[in-house]
Design a protein around this nucleic acid. Structure first.
Lengths: 227, 227
DNA sequence: TCAAAAGTGTTCTCCCTACACCCATGG
DNA sequence: CCATGGGTGTAGGGAGAACACTTTTGA
């Protein structure tokens, strides 16, 4: 038992992990709760913060424990503090956001109950996780202007139309194919690979790779992707 | 005494209140700590969260108690969770940001120990409040593109050169006077007032007022101030 | 009448936008 | 040979950046 002179809330972390593929579009990683409250409902991976870890560390640990996935970087995007958001006791949560390649997440051992859901078909969520998701989506839309989110979500090599589909999925708009291509290529962040994909049903598109070097240069000078 | 099965951190809120005037430039509101730890040091107004209030409410309450100022809106911008950030016990803080007219803050009764400091001349701060300030300044720079921060910080009527000086102070850059004026006026957010200021040492400039109506319209359609 | 700030307009360039044609591939 | 998607180019308009002259005022 732990006693304090004044009441203390419990503190948890939650991770909104976004992934993407052509079939399902933008998706989030959810785990099914095995215990009450909200037993059986889906929720973001997360859990109680330990006393000897900061929130970033705790979020990464819980994510690993519940999904088997070791994220390289997560971004804190909000604290949720409504008084009654957890029926057991006062719990505030610190929410994190990460972008991952779906393929990297496969094979989590403890991840029996972890599953991807398209953001357009998310089941009812536990606690106030629907609000957390809404804010996460907003933040993702903002970040897309400053951060090459496409390159974190897509496989290492990708085509221009895949990249465009991703941007359209996140922002919920449509772009002109030719203008999107020229704008992207002008940035210089894309490196054509010599290879071509083999599974093409139609004309074979060029494959690109993200140029990290160039991105670091651009970040130095403070850039912005306009869309 | 309050007992829990697992250890809980304490949770506080802190408010970074930005103000602005021509003499001092961009400033922050600080209070001097009356008790240990860090007794005598300056810190952001804030304090422990109560169990029956969410963090926004708690932040506004603490701000009022410590500075006498009733803010109309505050923006949560980060949680600080380093394990050793408070020497007494594990404390995490949720940080808020607000923009106010300096004049509105005068006259807080309890505010004996509240003072404005130019951001360029901030004294040593308690806890990790220097880190909180750094992040707040970054967020302010980001928000300036989506939110008419000038109009929240300046008096109700102001001149174009005052507005420009504010933008230059926040972003740390210089603009061409003529381009700044035409860009601002083109937005349609500025309403010329008939009046002219009397204290001019030189040629008397036009006074403007912020057009809230127009701003709401622009917000609907999702706009961005480019600078 | 001079110094200092205010007001105003033009030109050039670049980028965004809209849009059309041809090419490669598999069925 | 045709449907589907990939690749490329151009013309027009608008916005930003650079820049100079005139006006008002108090000293």
């Amino acid at each position: 038992m732990y006693t304090y002179q004044y009441p203390h809330p419990a503190v948890t972390t939650d991770c909104v992990i976004f992934g993407y593929d052509l079939r399902e579009g933008l998706s989030v990683l959810l785990v099914q709760r095995g215990i009450d409250p909200f037993k059986g409902r889906w929720a973001f991976p997360g859990g109680f913060l330990k006393m000897d870890e900061d929130a970033d560390t705790g979020a990464l640990r819980e994510l690993k424990e519940e999904t088997g996935f070791e994220a390289s970087s997560i971004t804190q995007f909000g604290a949720f503090t409504a008084v009654d958001r957890d029926p057991r006791e006062r719990v505030i949560t610190i929410a994190y956001l990460a972008l991952v390649r779906k393929g990297d997440v496969q094979g989590g051992d403890d991840a029996a109950d972890a599953r991807w859901f398209p953001v357009t078909a998310v089941p009812p969520l536990a606690f106030d996780h629907d609000r957390i998701l809404r804010l996460a989506l907003e933040r993702l839309k903002e970040q897309i202007h400053f951060r090459p989110v496409g390159f974190e979500l897509l496989p290492e090599v990708f085509t221009l139309s895949q990249l465009q589909a991703l941007y359209e999925a996140i922002l919920g708009v449509r772009f002109d194919r030719r203008n999107f291509a020229s704008k992207m290529l002008k940035l210089g962040l894309l490196q054509p690979t010599g290879d071509r994909p083999t599974d093409a049903a139609r004309r074979i598109p060029q494959l690109y790779r993200f140029n990290l070097q160039k991105y670091d240069d651009l970040k130095q000078s403070g850039f912005r992707l306009e869309f």
